[in-house]
């Protein structure tokens, strides 16, 4: 299909962008456009004004702080994430995920912030942000605020931003010796996905953070995390602790897979993500 007529504005500053979003009914920020433009072309949604934030310098940096945490600008592309030596050092598995997200053309355009804000259940990064307990940095007409990743995602394709707000960047805490596992089952698109951040010591799991994706809202699994803490870092113990990872979640059914299957697969990917994190000492 073809894009319907839409107004377009490319502000030079973040403040101008916020002003445009605040003052125009039906305005939406446009970053890489890899999801938004497709939706508009299908005429599944309509927008009156696209505010192009993709070239705002404030949104385009990856910066490592003294404490090892890393701030990724919302406008950083997947490709820039994949190619960043800093991110490769600080969060190597995330860098790898970015490098394998869809194809080169999409990686050249798609942005970290766009992926998070759009919150399509198939998107890669929402469960990563939740598992890592990331902080989302937001600017709006009333100034700046931070939102915890766990509070950022509010449902299918929705987030906690108000219409005048822009996600400017995301801070990922340092791994500090922990390792991240990222596992998914793809049936054309991702049908089940889990992210685990695990600390081990002397063959035991010290702590674990486990989040599930492919859901309207990515969720942590506190009971699984409690069951994992203190157990031996073995396949059997992890399988037992993650067996109920899918309990209570409500995934969607579609032509690719039923909700029942996705729920059963949540435990499989959770186990695999934890095991990957445990074994990840070698490769990140």
């Amino acid at each position: 299909m073809l894009l319907a007529a839409v107004d377009y504005y490319r502000p030079d500053t973040l403040a101008e962008a916020v002003e445009a979003l605040d003052s125009t009914e039906g305005a939406r920020p446009l970053a890489g456009g890899q999801s938004l433009i497709s939706i508009l072309k299908l005429r599944a949604a309509s927008v009156d004004l696209l505010v192009d934030i993709s070239r705002l310098e404030d949104l385009r940096a990856i910066a490592v702080a003294d404490d090892g945490s890393v701030r990724i600008g919302a406008g950083v592309t997947y490709d820039e994430m994949a190619m960043s030596p800093d991110l490769h050092r600080s969060h190597p598995r995330l860098s790898q995920v970015a490098a394998h997200t869809v194809d080169a053309q999409v990686r050249n355009r798609g942005t970290f912030g766009g992926n998070l804000c759009h919150n399509d259940p198939i998107n890669n990064f929402p469960p990563v942000a939740v598992a890592l307990e990331a902080t989302m940095h937001v600017t709006g007409k009333d100034g700046d605020r931070d939102i915890a990743a766990a509070d950022f995602f509010t449902g299918y394709f929705t987030n906690a931003l108000s219409s005048d707000e822009i996600l400017t960047g995301v801070t990922l805490p340092a791994l500090n010796g922990r390792h991240m596992g990222y596992q998914e089952i793809e049936i054309g698109e991702a049908a089940a996905r889990a992210v685990a951040v695990v600390a081990t010591s002397n063959g035991n799991i010290e702590s674990a953070s486990v989040a599930l994706g492919c859901l309207p809202i990515p969720v942590r699994r506190p009971q699984v995390e409690e069951a994992l803490a203190g157990t031996p870092a073995t396949a059997d113990a992890v399988a037992e602790a993650t067996a109920a990872a899918g309990e209570g979640i409500e995934p969607l059914s579609d032509a690719d897979a039923s909700a029942d299957y996705r729920q059963a697969m949540a435990s499989v990917v959770a186990k695999r993500a934890v095991m990957e994190a445990i074994e990840g000492g070698q490769n990140g």
Binding site: L42, G188, D254, A255
Partner: peptide, 22 residues
């Protein structure tokens, strides 16, 4: 292994583009 046209009970095609038709 991958390609199928599936209709729901209302006769709506669930695989009407390459995002859903693999």
């Amino acid at each position: 292994l991958k390609e199928t046209f599936e209709y729901d009970e209302d006769g709506q095609l669930l695989n009407s583009n390459f995002l859903f038709y693999h």
